[in-house]
Amino acid sequence: MSKVYIALQDNDESRYIVEAIEEVNEDCTIIHQPAMIRIEREHKLVVVREVVEEKMGRDWDIQEMHLNLITLGGNVDEDDDFFTLEWKQ
């Protein structure tokens, strides 16, 4: 099985994004490394704007993720409300 992954800089904003990812992606794995947080999941991983906004307590644009993103693996699909990483096979 293929894993998609995303890595974020370890900072205040990312912590909320990670919380939001954890909430909507069952069985994802969170790995803390110096200065970064890596999240992996089999097949697919979604970041949902509404859930991040809830955690942050403010409006959040999905493209703000570019500020804290380090790397990712998987086919990307991005819209106003969600950001998805997926392996098709």
Partner: peptide, 11 residues
């Protein structure tokens, strides 16, 4: 990491 945040887009 700042450079790499662009790399995600490049990848």
């Amino acid at each position: 990491f700042s450079a790499q945040s662009d790399e995600a887009r490049h990848m």
